[in-house]
Write a protein that binds this DNA or RNA. Sequence first.
DNA 1: CTTGGTTGGTGAAACGTTAAATCACATATG
DNA 2: CATATGTGATTTAACGTTTCACCAACCAAG
Lengths: 338, 338
Amino acid sequence: MGKVTIKDVARKANVSVTTVSNVINNSGRTSPDTIRKVKQVIEELQFSPSASARNLRDKNSHLIAVVVPFLEKGRLQDNPFYWQLVLGIEEGARNHQFHVILLGVDEGESFSFVSERHLDGLIVVGTFEGSPILNQILSLDVPCVFMDSYMSDSSLYQVLLDDEMGGYLGTKHLIGLGHQRIALLSGKLQQDGVNYKRWLGYRRALEEAGLPYDPELIREEPVSTVGGYQASQYITDPRMNITAVFVFSDVGAMGLIKGLYELGVQVPRDISIVGFDDLFYTDFMIPSLTTVNQDIIERGNITVRLLLDQIVGESRQQSRKVVLPVSLKVRQSTAPIH
Amino acid sequence: MGKVTIKDVARKANVSVTTVSNVINNSGRTSPDTIRKVKQVIEELQFSPSASARNLRDKNSHLIAVVVPFLEKGRLQDNPFYWQLVLGIEEGARNHQFHVILLGVDEGESFSFVSERHLDGLIVVGTFEGSPILNQILSLDVPCVFMDSYMSDSSLYQVLLDDEMGGYLGTKHLIGLGHQRIALLSGKLQQDGVNYKRWLGYRRALEEAGLPYDPELIREEPVSTVGGYQASQYITDPRMNITAVFVFSDVGAMGLIKGLYELGVQVPRDISIVGFDDLFYTDFMIPSLTTVNQDIIERGNITVRLLLDQIVGESRQQSRKVVLPVSLKVRQSTAPIH
DNA sequence: CTTGGTTGGTGAAACGTTAAATCACATATG
DNA sequence: CATATGTGATTTAACGTTTCACCAACCAAG
C-alpha cells in the first residue's frame, strides 16, 4: 500500500538509486541497456517521483499562484472575465508541467504561504501602484507578472492591454456615429489604473474630433452589473443630453442596458452603448453588445509564458512589459444618432 | 538570502530543533518560558516552516484539486457557473488552511500528479458513472467528492442538487401558466446524469397534470450559448406548436432567447422560457430569466467541507450523499399562455 | 536510601529525491 | 608497459521537518 519510491525501483532493477534518478531526468550518463531496464521497472511498479521530495531538495515547487485580490465583495464572482483568464493561465501552465493554485487574498492577509510552499511564481491580477498588497508581494522576492496594473517600475513584468487605444477606439466609433455627449461608466479612475488609461483614450478621441470634455459625463461608480444598472438613472437625466455611453466592462454594460430597458429607453435607438472585454456572452445579449475586444484566453497564455520565462530563466529578453492589442467589435448596441 | 530554517531558530533561541518544532505544533511538552522565547525568535526571524519538508515527512500536502474534465471544447469557458463554484470551493478551503489547485483534464490524461503531489483530496465535477476518467480516479484511492454525478455506489461522497425537483418545479410552473406543449433543451440525457434527473421531474409534472409526454419535444443538443441559439429554429417550427421551453442551463436559455429574438419571436409573449442555475446575470437579461435557483457559492462551501471531513477524519457521519434543495425564481421570461 | 513517576528537554533517524565526488574498468596514447 | 582518457555506475551528503527513544533533574513515596 505504501507509495513506491525510487529505492524500490532501484532494488528491483538492480541498480543504484542515482542511476534511476539519472534515467528519470535523462541526464545522459546512462547506457541504453540500463535505461531500458529501469524504465521497464518504473512502468511495472507504476512509480512516480514524489514532488515534495523534489521540492525540498530543489527549493521549487512547479507551482504558481494566481492572486486575485477581493477588491470589492462580489466583484469577482460576477465577472466571468476572471474565469476565462484563469482557464487560459491553467492551460498555459499545464503545457509546461506547472500547476496553478488559485488564491483569493484579503487586504490584511499574509503571504507567508508563498515561502512556505516555495511557490515558483505569482500572477497578480488587478492591483495598483502603492497598494499595500503590492508592497507585500514585492518584498517576497519571487518571480511575478502583474496583470492590468500599470507600474512605473520598469523592472517589473507586466501584461497589459492597450487600454488607451481601447478607450480611443470605442469613443471614436461613437463619435463617428454622430454622438457628441458620450458618458463614461469608468469605474474608479485610479491614477495609472486600466480605467484611467481608457479614460485617456476617450479624451484623445474627443480632442481629435474637436469635442469638448465635460467632467459631468464621467461616472466612477463600480462597473459591476448592479453598478451599471443603477447608473441608468443618471444617464437618462434629460438635462444631461446623453446619447451614448461607454462602459468600461461588459458586465456593467449589461446592467446598464437592463436599467435603461426598464426606464423605457431603447438601445441603440435612444442611446448607444459600448462595452469592454468581449465576454463570451456579448454576442447573445439583446441587443448584442458593441465592445472592445481582447482574447482573454490568449492573454492568460501569454502571461503564464512570461512568468515561466523568468522562472526557468530562458528569458528571451523580450521587453518585460507586454502590451496586447485591442480591437473594436461592432455589434448592435451602437447606432447613428438620429 | 537563504531561507531561514528551523535550525536557525533553534540556534538563536538556544534550544534544540525538536523544541522549536514542539512549540510550532504546540505539543504541550514545552515550558511557558521556552515557548515565549522561541516564539519571540520566530517572530524576529520571520520564520515559516517549509511545506515541502512537512509534506515529505507527513505524506500530505494540504492541497486539494478541483478536477474539471474538458468535456466539450469551450463548454468550460462559456459557463460562469464553474467560476462561481470554484470561488466557493476556494473560500471554503482557505478557511481550513488548505489550498486549491485547479486542474483541467483531458480524456486520456494521466492522474499521476495526484500521487506525485500527494494531493489530499479531489473534487470532481461533472463526470459520470462508467466514464474512463472516473475509473482512473477511483483507482487512485484518494478522498474524493463528486459533484453533479449520480453514482449508484453509495460509498462515494457526492454533492448533488435536487435535480428532479428542479425539473419538476420548472415544468409545473409552466403548466400552471397554461402551457401544454413544453419543449426541453436538456443536453445529453446521460442515464443518471443531472439532465436525466431533471427530465424525470419534467415527466412527473406532466403526468401529474395529465398531460401527454411527447418525445418530439425533447432536444438533446448541448446547452451552451450556441446550442441554445441554434435550437431556436426547431422550437419555432409551427408544426410543433411549442409555447414554452425549459432549458437546462442559463447560458443555453440566453442563447435560445437570442435566437428567438432574431426570428422575431418574443419572450415571454410568444414563448415562455425557464432556465437552470440562476447565474449572476439572469436578473439582467432582457427579459430577466425565470430559472431554477441554487446558491452556487454555498454549494462550493459544502463540497469542500465534505471533502475535508474525510481528510481530517472527523467524519460527522452525515450521509455521504448531500442533496441540496432548489427553488424556482420566477422572473419575466415566463407568462400565461394567451 | 532506593525506586518510580513526572516534567522539560535533546539526539538521531527517517521521509524521497538529486548532485557532487568517487570509483572500477576498459580502451587509447606516449 | 605505464599513463592518460572516458564511460557508466555507485556512495554519500544534503534539503527541513517531525517523531521516537532517550536522558537529566527533580520530587514523592516506600
